[in-house]
């Protein structure tokens, strides 16, 4: 089973790619759970899930014991149950779990955060492939998600600032609990030159590249997922290439493991 975290600078295209990749996995008959762990969620659009705001409700958790986490899933509700009850099924059978919400208080988000990390920790490994869409910056990739992801995908756009973020995120590979693999995807590229520039500045290969386009901007404005609005676009082609890279990464890992 896969546990994938999409990370990168804000606006680089994490949600668009994560949502499209999750659905392509769904089409490949994988059982996918897509998690939006940004306190200001934005993954639903890319998945084509028609929910505006569906956070984990406060009452899924109760206060934990003094020596454990502050909040724990309420008695009778396990990780699989949480997903079944609170993660709606969207197109291509992808389940969508959102822990932040647009208008929630800090306390609400903290409760949801505990529910979410317990769920990711305790979900049976053979139940779901997990595709996580993380907030921009380094906090969640390095502190929260770091322990759970076994593959991190760094999304980079061809700007100096995005490269700075990417370089910091690539240091995850030296972490004690770091992911087994890291892939780099170049997004919003205009041409091959942009891809080469990113690879050169990062000092490593780019595993997939996806261009942006006017059609994608229009699709976003109409609240249409890339895969629904522009299935033949170069952006979706880039996402497909990324899916192949991901599948290959896990396949190689299995072969090495056996």
């Amino acid at each position: 089973m896969m546990r994938i975290a999409f990370v990168g600078k804000g606006g680089a295209g994490k949600s668009s790619l994560a949502g499209t990749v999750a659905r392509l996995f769904g089409r490949n008959h994988r059982n996918v759970l897509a998690i939006d762990s940004d306190p200001v969620p934005g993954l639903a659009y890319a998945l084509g899930v028609q929910v505006v705001d569906r956070p984990i409700p406060d009452d899924v958790v109760v206060e934990g014991a003094a020596d454990g986490p502050r909040w724990v899933l309420r008695p009778g509700l396990d990780a699989a149950g949480l997903v079944e009850q609170y993660a709606p099924v969207g197109p291509d059978d992808v389940r969508y779990l959102q822990f932040g919400n647009l208008w929630g208080s800090i306390a609400t988000i903290q409760r949801a955060q505990h529910a979410w990390s317990q769920a990711v920790r305790e979900l049976p490994a053979d139940l779901y492939d997990i595709v996580g869409d993380l907030p921009g910056g380094t906090r969640q990739p390095m502190a929260g998600w770091g322990k759970y992801a076994d593959l991190v995908i760094v999304v980079v756009e061809p700007t100096v600032k995005s490269l700075h973020s990417a370089r910091r995120l690539l240091t995850l590979s030296s972490a004690a609990w770091g992911p087994e693999s890291i892939l780099v995807v170049a997004n919003k590229v205009r041409d091959r030159g942009d891809v080469a520039w990113i690879a050169d500045r990062l000092g490593r290969a780019v595993d997939a590249a996806s261009p942006w386009s006017e059609a994608m901007i229009q699709a976003e404005r109409c609240n249409l997922a890339p895969l629904d609005a522009e299935p033949e676009s170069d952006f979706v082609a880039g996402a497909r290439a990324l899916v192949e890279s991901i599948e290959l990464t896990y396949r190689l890992r299995q072969e090495v493991g056996t």
């Binding site: 380094t138 906090r139 990739p141 240091t171 972490a175 609990w177």
Partner: peptide, 8 residues
Amino acid sequence: RIENPEPG
């Protein structure tokens, strides 16, 4: 505060 992964 700058987050860094614990070195391994």
